[in-house]
Structure formats: C-alpha cells, structure tokens
C-alpha cells in the first residue's frame, strides 16, 4: 500500500520535471522510481508511518486552508509592525504544551507555529515546544490552544 503510493508520487514527480514522453525517458524514470523505492525500504528503512505518512493526505485538505488563512492574518500583523517607525515589538519566550500523540503530529504543530509569521518554534521535546513570539498578541494567540487542537485533530485522522 505504502509502496504503491510512493511509486505514484515519485512517478508524478518525474513526469512533472521532465514533461517528455519518449520511451527511453519513461523507462529511465521507471528505473529510477523502483531504485528509490528499493533503497528507502530495504537500505534506509524509512518507508513507514513516519517517513511517508499517507494517512494524513485527506485531512490536509481541511487543515491547509485554515493554516494559510492564519498565515495571511498574522503576516499582515507583522507587516504593520515592521512598517511602524517605532518598531513596537516585545519579544518573549513561551513554552507551549503539545497534546499530539505521535512525533509526526508534534512536528506538524511545530512547523505550523514556525510557518505563521510572528511565532517561531525554537526547541521541541516530549513535554512541549519553546516558542519565540514577536508580540504579546502572538503568544496569547498560541496560548488559546486553537492551533494545538487542530493539529491534534489533523494527526488523529487515521
């Protein structure tokens, strides 16, 4: 199952980059795809739930638009701060608890925090994430735990 999805993804990537449909190039693409699947599975042993999380692909369609909207909102806030001549920043470090169960979920949450302008995850461990926030509003927005809940729901979709 996971092999098939990796083969499909890699073949789509090959066709996307090449754009030619000559027999030699297609054969070379097939050979490369099979070699990569063999290498990731047998030699590197990363073709598992963590290395290729296929179960998350459906839920991404609802999580990503929400995340993009968050990025736009906080991006506008940070833009106003940068263009303000007085530069009204109050940087602070906060520790945010995580409620995700797996490592993939925690990484998704930390990356979502970093992707949103105004908050950057500095350190990630079992208990929580050390976040550097640009303003008080950014730190308080994280403290409500909305993004935490959504990331946990995203991760739980199996």
């Amino acid at each position: 199952m996971r092999h098939v999805s990796l083969i499909v993804a890699l073949a789509a990537f090959w066709l996307l980059l090449s754009g030619f449909y000559k027999p030699f190039l297609l054969a070379a693409g097939l050979g490369s795809v099979l070699a990569i699947v063999w290498f990731t599975d047998r030699r590197m042993k990363v073709l598992d739930l963590e290395g290729h999380p296929t179960h998350l692909s459906i839920r991404a369609l609802t999580y990503w638009p929400w995340l993009i909207w968050e990025v736009v909102k906080s991006g506008w806030d940070v833009t106003k701060i940068i263009l303000n001549p007085r530069l009204p920043i109050s940087p602070r470090l906060v520790r945010v608890p995580t409620s995700q169960k797996t490592d993939v979920g925690r990484v998704i949450y930390a990356n979502s925090i970093t992707l949103t302008p105004g908050t950057t995850s500095l350190e990630l461990d079992e208990q929580g994430i050390l976040v550097h926030a640009l303003t008080v509003a950014g730190a308080e927005g994280l403290a409500t735990g909305d993004m935490d809940r959504r990331a946990a729901a995203f991760e739980a979709a199996l």
Binding site: L83, L87, P91, P117, G118, T120, H132
Partner: peptide, 26 residues
C-alpha cells in the same frame, strides 16, 4: 520588500527570523 526591510531593521537574530518568516513562504 517589507520582509527584507524587517530583516534589516529588527534588533536581534530571533526577531529577524520572524521577518524572514513573512518573506519566505508568504
């Protein structure tokens, strides 16, 4: 341009990361 300006204006390295974060993906 706002993000690049922020990278130039921000007072320390961690705050510059935020300015890069508005420029980079956004």
């Amino acid at each position: 341009i706002v993000g690049a300006l922020g990278i130039l204006r921000m007072p320390d390295m961690y705050t510059r990361c935020h300015a890069a974060g508005i420029l980079d993906p956004f």
